[in-house]
Amino acid sequence: MAPPHDAPSAGELIAAVREFLQGEILPALEGRTRFHGLVAVNVLGMVERELALGPAHQQAHRERLAALGFADDAALAAAIRAGELDDRYAEVKAALLDAVRDKLAVANPGYADS
Rank of each mutant, 00 (worst) to 15 (best):
A2E: 10
P3E: 12
P3C: 10
P4M: 01
D6C: 15
A7S: 15
P8G: 05
S9H: 04
L13V: 13
A15M: 13
A15G: 12
A16G: 12
E19N: 14
F20G: 09
L21R: 07
Q22E: 14
G23S: 12
E24N: 12
E24V: 07
I25L: 13
I25C: 11
L26A: 08
L26T: 03
A28N: 10
A28W: 06
L29G: 05
E30Q: 15
G31E: 12
G31M: 11
T33R: 14
H36I: 14
G37A: 01
V39E: 13
A40M: 07
V41T: 08
N42D: 14
V43R: 15
V43L: 15
L44A: 04
L44Q: 04
G45E: 05
L51Q: 10
A52H: 04
A52F: 01
A52C: 03
L53C: 00
L53D: 00
G54Q: 05
P55D: 05
P55N: 04
H57R: 11
H57V: 08
H57A: 13
Q59S: 09
H61V: 05
R62M: 03
E63G: 03
A66I: 02
A66Q: 03
A67N: 09
L68S: 06
A71W: 00
A71F: 00
A71L: 04
A71R: 02
D72K: 01
D73F: 02
A75E: 04
A75I: 00
L76E: 05
L76Q: 04
L76I: 02
A77L: 01
A77G: 01
A77C: 01
A79D: 10
I80E: 02
R81S: 08
R81G: 06
R81M: 10
A82W: 03
G83T: 02
L85N: 06
L85A: 07
A90E: 11
A90W: 13
A94G: 10
A95H: 05
A95P: 03
A95D: 02
L96A: 10
L97I: 05
D98G: 11
R101V: 08
D102A: 12
K103G: 12
L104V: 02
V106T: 04
A107K: 05
N108Y: 06
N108W: 04
Y111K: 09
D113M: 14
D113E: 14
S114N: 15
S114Q: 15
S114R: 13
S114L: 15
